[in-house]
Amino acid sequence: MLRLLNIEFIKLWNNKASKILILAYFILLSSIALISAIKFDFGMFKFHLAEQGIFNFPYIWHFNTFVAGLLKFFLLIVIVSMVANEYSNKTIKQNLIDGLSKKEWILSKVYTVVVFALISTVFVFVISLILGLIFSSYTEINIIFSDLEYLVAFFIKLFGFFCLGLFAGMLIKRSAFAIGAIVVYFFIEFFSYLIFKGFYRDSDIVDNIYNFLPFKSLWNLIDEPGSRLGAVKELASAAGQDLSYDYAVHWYEIAIVLGWSALFIYLSYRLLLKRDL
C-alpha cells in the first residue's frame, strides 16, 4: 500500500498544476479562520460573526465541515486530472507494461483519494479545534468532543465525491470534459429535483427518490447549518416560521454514499479491465 501511495505521490507532487491546486485548497481551508474576522459596524448595527456563536462547540464541527465541504471542488480537479492525464499521456499503458497490475493501478488511485479525504478531515479538525478554543463560549471537554460525527460525515462526503471524480476521469479520459460532465450532471440532478419538487409539493416521494442519487446523498450528509444559528432562529421565529429541522448525520446517509463510492470504484476497475489501451 505504501508503495502504491509513494508511486502516486511522485506523480502528483512533481506536477506543478496539481501541487498548486493542492496547496490552494489547504490555504483556503485554513482561511475558514478568516470568517472570524467578519465584522460589520454600521453605527447602530454592530455585527461580529465570530460572536454569533458559529464557533461555539459543538456547533463549530457542523459549521466548519459544511463550509469546508464547499471547497472540495479544488481537489476534484486534481483527482480527475490525475486519472485523465494518465490516459492523455498514455502513461497508464506504460505503468501496466512496467508491471503494475490493473488492480494495483486502481488501488493506487483509491488510496490517494482516501489520503486526500483523511488529510482534509484532520486539517478541518485541527483548525476547528483551534478556532473553537479561541472563540467558543463552552470549553468543557465533553462538549468540545461531542457531535464529532460531522467529521466522519465530512470524510465520507469527500471520499464519495472524489470517487465520483475518479470514475468520471476513467470513463471520459479527458480532464476538462470529465469535470464538465460532472458539472452538467450536477445541474441535471439539481434542476430536475426542483422541477419534480414543484409538481409533487405535498408528497415526500421526490425526496425519497433523490436521496438515493449521488449529489443529493452527498449533500444530505451534512445539512446546512445556517438555520441552526441563534440569530437566524430568532429572525425566523419572529417571522412565525419554525425552522426546527433534523441536522443529525444518519447511518443510512453514510451507507448510500459508501454504496455509490463502491460502485464508482468497481466500475472504474471494470472499465480498466475491459478496455484495450
Binding site: I7, N15, K90
Partner: peptide
C-alpha cells in the same frame, strides 16, 4: 521484462531521472 511500445510514454512534467525513479518504484 523490459518493454517499449510504439512511442515512449512518460510523464512530460517530470525529469528523466524522476521518471525512471517512478519506474523503479513500480518494478520494486
Amino acid at each position: 521484462v523490459g518493454a517499449i511500445i510504439e512511442r515512449p510514454n512518460f510523464y512530460p512534467y517530470m525529469s528523466a531521472y524522476k521518471n525512471l525513479k517512478l519506474v523503479c518504484k513500480i518494478k520494486d
